Simulated scan of single mutants.
Amino acid sequence: MPVGPESASEPAWFKSSYSGGNTTECLEAACFLSGVLVRDSKRPEQPHVVISAEAWANFLTSTRRSH
């Protein structure tokens, strides 16, 4: 599912395709121009983590290498 950059004030949250059928332990993410927001899907009203675009790219690169 392609996800484009969004404004941080109006994030479009999505769950990973790897979340599977387990709805009790999921993270949600939202992309925006300077990075990615990550939150606990069970507590969406709680604060979220902000990850810079550079850190997110490094994370994705390292996970792809491990498989």
Rank of each mutant, 00 (worst) to 15 (best):
E6N: 07
R39C: 08
Q46K: 13
S66D: 14
S66I: 10
P47C: 06
W56H: 08
S17P: 08
H67V: 08
A12M: 13
V49I: 12
M1Q: 14
W56I: 00
L27G: 13
K42E: 05
C26R: 11
E45Q: 15
S9H: 10
H48V: 07
E45I: 05
A29S: 10
G4K: 07
E6S: 09
S7A: 08
E54Q: 13
E28R: 10
A12P: 00
F32N: 08
G21P: 04
T63G: 03
E54F: 03
G4N: 13
L37E: 01
D40K: 09
T61L: 01
I51Q: 07
S16A: 06
I51S: 08
Q46A: 15
R65G: 06
V36D: 07
I51H: 01
G21L: 10
P5Q: 05
S66F: 05
T24Q: 15
S16N: 13
G35S: 12
Y18I: 06
F14T: 08
W56R: 00
E25M: 12
R65T: 03
E45S: 14
V3F: 02
V49F: 12
R39E: 06
S62K: 05
V3E: 11
S9W: 00
R43W: 07
A55K: 08
P44I: 01
V49E: 06
H48N: 14
L37S: 06
V50A: 15
K42W: 00
S52T: 14
F32R: 04
R43Q: 15
R65I: 00
E10Q: 14
A57W: 01
S62R: 07
S34D: 14
G4S: 09
G20W: 02
T61G: 02
A8R: 15
S7F: 08
A30Y: 00
L37N: 06
S41T: 06
